[in-house]
Design a protein around this nucleic acid. Structure first.
Length: 558
RNA sequence: GCGCCUGUAGCUCAGGGGAUAGAGCAUCGGACUUCUAAUCCGAGUGCCGCAGGUUCGAUUCCUGCCAGGCGCGCCA
């Protein structure tokens, strides 16, 4: 139930009738009635709702916008819920409504609870959201942290608007990186007893590999009895398994839980790559050149054709990824959404080509490009290098600023904006971080509720109080803001813009803090007190709801 | 060279075909005997990168240019 939308539709009806009446009276001559735009204006002096219909139709009506507006308003029938209609600015029609519709919001929130703002827009369509998908060769970094926050919140948004969502982390545990990692681990294992044992030149230098080697030695002291190939294969499996567990634990600390950790090696084991190659071959999309097998992806709009089997007879990364995407589609997902870094932008064309070659529409794959995170310390960008083993991990970040602040920091920015993360600021000002501002609003409400109950005051329901007591500016503003939630959630989901919800959270918290300062709840006259208790309770529900969407705790005390 | 992202207040960033372009931080000044001052109230700040075009109206859409970031492998 979307009260704001209902009001809009009612007002659109009022305007449409006025237009038709004006037409029949010959005051206006329009070839057709266009869609009637209505919005909730930022500036409250512009009313509860404003329409630009007169500006849009002025030219076709061959009159000035203000004249058209006057004609429309002159042909409107009086309606009880409309208190005033004004023509303003270049020709806007501003509607001032009685507060009834705002009181209705409170009843709806009370009835729906944390489901308030949800809708069935997605109609159960199956969306698969794949994100992070970092190589299982090291700890997660801050870019992964950004992707995790954005992906997780998008998943929550999609669920809120009625999609069936699966979240997946693709574990690339069968490629070159995993091989190099396995050799690095093996070398560290050897070095425990033989410090001069050579370390691979391209190996992973991080200390965590040494730590891992010690654990490996403890669990498997006789590893060196295996032949080289078997030993490396063991290190690869055991090592990537350890990394996956580590990454899982870090993400759990961050309140991100994937429905499935999809292992690349299982694709290989199941023959999925051969299957997809056979599929391409059958359709004639393959050819051989210079001992390599190529996929003619240019048939589907890619810049160039892509190698599927290298001249050394091994597969490329894309081959396994195509098999993975094929697997997703075969599992019945009709929309695959991947979150990638900007370095993978050039990769979109070949994946869309592959999807089409497999007989699925190009837009069943959607790729969101999340821009990079630059870490700043002492005003300087922190240079990070996996090769040199120098980086700030996601866990470092969470340890420093906390899960809630970290998530909020990533979610407040639009996904396509480059993000400067000032570590000094995040540490120094962690108490001033905007996330606390939002959480504090929630805690304050909890405190009011607690004290009301201690004083023997039962928290009333909307039906039992005089809602017309709610008429202060700060009270009206709160109700209006809450009325916008359903649309905010829908837009954030449809446009893949989770930062809208973080902004909304700040706005709502700000309005509440203002209300808190200007209007007391406890200690007021009983009817006022009860109405405000209902209002505060509703704000609490909405705050809890959006904090949940953001994956941030809603504390009752701070 | 080609492709993608970005360019808005001192800083970090929202917004977006329409009404005086917004927020936080920073700066300055006020507000706690009363539900948590992690709060509130007030004050100043803008060639919305530049130049054209579309439009009744452009900061928003289109084109070109400039600047920064990132890609363009038989790496993943």
């Amino acid at each position: 139930m979307n009260v704001a939308l209902q009001q809009k539709e009612k007002l659109q009806g009022v305007i449409r009738e006025a237009l038709l009446r004006a037409q029949s009276r010959g005051e206006l001559s329009l070839p057709e009635i266009p869609e009637i735009g209505l919005e909730i204006p930022r500036d409250t002096s512009h009313g509860d709702f404003a329409s630009n219909i007169a500006l849009v139709t002025a030219k076709k009506a061959k009159k000035s916008p203000r004249d058209v507006a006057a004609i429309i308003v002159g042909n409107m029938e009086a309606e009880g819920f409309i208190e005033d209609v004004q023509i303003a600015g270049p020709g806007f029609i501003n509607f001032f409504l009685s507060n009834e519709w705002l009181y209705e919001i409170l009843k709806v929130i009370e009835a729906q609870g944390l489901a308030y703002g949800n809708c069935s827009h997605g109609q159960g369509e199956k969306i698969l959201l794949e994100f992070v998908s970092a190589n299982p060769v090291g700890p997660l970094n801050v870019v992964n942290a950004r992707a995790a926050a954005v992906g997780d919140t998008l998943a929550r948004l999609f669920r809120a608007v009625g999609y069936t969502v699966g979240t997946e982390f693709y574990v690339n545990d069968a490629g070159n990186q995993a091989d190099i990692f396995a050799r690095s681990l093996e070398a560290r294992y050897q070095q425990i007893d033989n410090p001069n044992y050579p370390f691979p030149t391209e190996g992973y230098p991080g200390d965590y590999v040494k730590t891992l080697a010690l654990r490996l030695k403890e669990e498997h002291p006789n590893l060196l009895e295996l032949e080289w190939d078997e030993r490396i294969a063991f290190c690869k499996k055991w090592g990537t398994d350890q990394m996956v567990e580590w990454q899982k634990a870090d993400l759990a600390n961050y309140d991100v839980h994937f429905d499935l950790w999809f292992r690349e090696r299982e694709l290989h084991a199941a023959g999925a790559l051969e299957e997809v190659i056979a599929e391409f071959d059958k359709k004639g999309y393959l050819y051989t050149n210079e001992d390599a097998l190529w996929f003619r992806s240019t048939d589907f709009g890619d810049d160039k054709d892509r190698v599927i089997i290298k001249s050394d007879k091994t597969y490329t990364y894309v081959t396994a990824d195509i098999a993975y995407h094929y697997d997703k589609l075969k599992r019945g997902y009709t929309k695959l959404i991947n979150i990638w870094g900007p370095d993978h932008h050039g990769y979109i064309g070949r994946m869309k080509a592959a999807i089409q070659a497999l007989g699925y529409p190009a837009d069943s794959l959607e790729v969101l490009i999340l821009q990079y995170v630059a870490l700043l310390r002492d005003g300087q960008q922190v240079k990070m290098s996996k090769r040199a083993g120098e980086f700030i991990t996601m866990q470092d970040l969470v340890d420093e600023v906390g899960k809630d602040a970290a998530r909020f920091f990533f979610l407040i920015r639009s996904p396509e904006s480059h993000l400067d993360f000032d570590l000094d600021l995040a540490v120094e000002q962690s108490n001033e971080n905007p996330v606390f501002y939002v959480q504090y609003a929630h805690a304050r409400i909890s405190s009011i509720m607690r004290q009301a109950e201690e004083a023997g005051v039962t928290i009333p329901t909307a039906a039992d109080v005089s809602l017309e007591c709610l008429k202060e500016e700060s009270e009206i503003a709160l109700m209006k803001k809450m009325a916008e939630l359903p649309e905010e959630i829908l837009i954030a989901a449809v446009q893949r813009e989770p930062h809208r919800i973080a902004r909304y959270a700040l706005d709502l918290a700000s309005l509440f803090h203002s209300f808190y300062t200007h209007c007391h709840v406890l200690g007021e006259q009983e009817d006022v007190r009860d109405a405000r208790l209902v209002l505060a309770k509703c704000v609490q529900i909405v705050l809890k709801k959006i904090l949940h969407v953001l994956g941030i705790d809603a504390p009752d005390q701070m």
